[in-house]
Nucleic acid binder design. Structure first.
Lengths: 194, 194
DNA sequence: TAAAAAAACAAACATCTGTTTGGTTAAAAA
DNA sequence: TTTTTAACCAAACAGATGTTTGTTTTTTTA
């Protein structure tokens, strides 16, 4: 197995960028290989030199999305000890990234694994790399009896992901949305910030 | 304009049922007119006797979805005075309907107006018939200063709609999910239930 | 500078898609 | 019983879609 030597003017990065942008803006099914090729300045068939199928192209976009989001997450919560403060940082990163900064992250939210039966498992496995981080973060919260951590996670992540459907640039900033969401779910209880 | 006389063996109801089921399970783009026709026991072209286009078929499904959800909502909150209790009832109806009981309601959550540029306005207008009810309900809540009612609405509806992506029959019941969600966002404050 | 191979082109192929058209059946109206 | 027409069938059409194939260009390596 010889790894091909990547040339200086390789346009795979550009290709992935445009694919992410279109998948995020229009959806996977609504975006054609011709759309992507045109946006990347190449012919439809040329995409297949870099990716064996449309599905695999999506997987590649997904991988970059998870990788980027995880990196931002890790950087944001690094050195923060208080569980609620960690959740606040995570919410902030999640919303800013998904709403404002990364087409790749947007694809993760818009195109769900279960929408591509053939690759659902692979996509879900990639997602878990990020969602496990959120789960661990919420499990560390000191919760009142009666609140199921899993339900709290579903509520927060659900609200955050759904934000993509109503958020438009120029509205309340993603950071402010994150602050509000945290304010609503965080209630004073023993063990949390005084 | 003569309204055609609807015959006893009209299969439009069956057609709508199957369309709703398939749109909810696979998505709009992923469902073909042939899929729907086969499920309804007719030929693809026959659909066009009942609906002028695939888009209009979706609109018809959407209409039934909004109508059903609104009816359930109205029945659930009727006679309930306390704002938080009203929200609880609404959450219960929303989750049970969307997760368990109505393919039509499922379509409303899975197929978003902005995903069909041509009919986005019409679909959004239909949705508003329901979402305005939720908005009114939340605006009636006595909230602590600092919490934006709009953000609370986005959080609750977002979490509730997103539930479709993780909920599977046999899990925690929709009613229990509703109870947990309410528990998390409802905090003791002046004006609410003692 | 010549050989090797990465990267893209040009053009098609097979299939699927929403939709149309003209003919047929069967239920209701006369 | 005859007539009307709601409801559907049968078959195709035109365009879009993911993908393949053979060839050419262009960069790197020897």
């Amino acid at each position: 197995m010889v790894t091909p030597v990547r040339r200086a003017n390789n346009r795979n990065d550009r290709l992935l960028d445009e694919a992410a942008r279109l998948f995020a803006a229009q959806g996977y099914r609504e975006t054609t290989m011709r759309d992507i090729a045109a946006a990347a300045g190449m012919l439809p068939g040329s995409i297949y030199y870099h990716h064996p199928s449309k599905t695999e192209l999506l997987v590649a976009v997904y991988e970059k999305g998870v990788e980027g989001l995880c990196q931002r997450f890790d950087a944001a919560v690094a050195g923060v000890a208080d569980p609620w403060e960690r959740l606040g940082k995570a919410l902030d990163v999640h919303l800013e990234t998904v709403l404002d900064q990364s087409d790749y992250a947007r694809v993760m939210v818009r195109v769900l694994p279960e929408h591509l039966p053939g690759s659902a498992q692979e996509l879900a496995r990639l997602r878990d790399g990020y969602e496990d981080r959120i789960a661990g973060l919420i499990d560390a919260l000191p919760l009142n009896g009666g609140i199921d951590p899993k339900m709290l996670r579903f509520l927060i992540l659900g609200a955050a992901n759904w934000a993509q459907t109503w958020y438009r640039p120029g509205m309340t900033s993603p950071a402010e949305v994150a602050r509000q969401f945290l304010l609503i779910v965080q209630r004073p209880m023993e063990g949390s910030v005084g």
